[in-house]
Computed example of a mutant assay.
Amino acid sequence: MFSKLYDALNAKTADEKCNLVKEIWKNFEDLYTDKEAEILPLLKPTFANFCQVVSPKEVPQGKILKQDIHLAYLLHSIVHIEFSAIDLALDSAYRFRNMPKQYYYDWIEVAKEEVTHYEKLHGLLETLGFKYGDFKVHDTLFQALKICKNHLDRIALVPRGMEAVGLDVNPFLTTKIQKSKHKLQNEILDVLYLIFNEEISHVSKGSVWFNYLCDINHIQIKERPTKYIEILSKYNFKLPKANTHLNKEARIKAGFSAEEIDKLYLFSS
């Protein structure tokens, strides 16, 4: 299993990665887990093979959706996030060993669902006459994957940090698309609705394994909200400006405690 995960992480093209993830998911029950297999570094992301990687400030933004090109900018940004999320899930399964079988099932399932999100969004981008790689991208998510090698930190920072942001931003994006009145409006809204509901599940898995690792590390339940914020601070995590409001209802569904949400408000202020 770990060998196949590493192959998927190092795929040269988007199609190759997606196909390898589908294969791993389909054959999950038959894959052998060699827990002694060497853990290799991931040197560069797949998207670096066909995207120009720049700083976040240089990525084109679809702020006002007046023309197809502006919607393409926005779709491309979301396509890139969903594609990057495939690697985040794959690497969580690949890099951390000696976990229960359910752990690997969960993150490979997440990778498979991120593939679906990517493919649906990319299909809409192609309808506009563009493809993934036509615009500049940043590698913020990949850098988090590289620097965050402690397992508890990874779960706190990625699914419960960076990916949880999607729960807050999705309603903002939905409203923006609704106001655009674009011909693809309904198709895009359908995909955003799918992503929103499945991201609640993804973040919820993060909450389950965060608490599992806290148990192993003898971190008491009452100490966990503070520990969570400490980890975010350690990696200089910041909520994006679009997060004017935390989606409390979605975050609670995804396993956040009321105390964690209160601390996040203070953390982001």
Rank of each mutant, 00 (worst) to 15 (best):
E23V: 01
I24E: 00
I24Y: 06
W25D: 03
N27S: 10
N27T: 08
N27K: 12
N27M: 02
N27A: 02
F28K: 04
F28H: 07
E29F: 11
E29S: 15
E29C: 03
Y32M: 01
D34H: 08
E36T: 13
E36V: 07
A37T: 04
A37I: 10
E38L: 11
I39T: 15
L40K: 15
L40T: 06
L40R: 14
L43P: 00
L43I: 13
L43R: 11
K44I: 08
P45N: 03
P45I: 02
P45W: 02
P45S: 05
P45M: 04
T46P: 07
T46S: 07
F47Y: 15
F47W: 08
F47R: 02
A48E: 15
A48H: 13
A48Y: 14
F50Q: 03
C51G: 09
C51Q: 04
Q52F: 10
Q52N: 14
V53Q: 01
V53E: 01
V54Y: 01
V54Q: 03
V54K: 06
V54E: 06
S55F: 00
S55G: 05
S55D: 10
P56I: 03
P56S: 01
K57V: 10
E58S: 12
E58F: 09
E58H: 10
V59C: 05
V59T: 06
P60R: 01
P60S: 04
Q61A: 11
G62Q: 03
G62H: 06
G62C: 09
K63L: 15
K63I: 14
I64Y: 15
I64G: 02
K66Y: 12
K66W: 12
Q67W: 14
Q67D: 14
D68E: 14
D68Q: 11
D68N: 15
D68P: 13
H70W: 02
H70I: 00
H70R: 07
L71P: 11
A72F: 06
H76Q: 08
S77D: 13
S77E: 11
V79E: 08
H80F: 07
H80T: 05
H80V: 03
H80S: 13
I81W: 01
I81P: 00
F83T: 03
F83P: 00
S84N: 12
A85D: 03
A85Q: 01
A85C: 09
I86S: 01
I86L: 09
D87G: 13
L88C: 12
A89K: 01
L90W: 09
D91E: 13
D91Y: 13
S92V: 06
S92W: 00
S92R: 08
Y94D: 00
Y94N: 00
R95N: 08
R95C: 04
N98Q: 08
M99S: 09
M99D: 05
K101S: 11
Y103P: 10
Y103I: 05
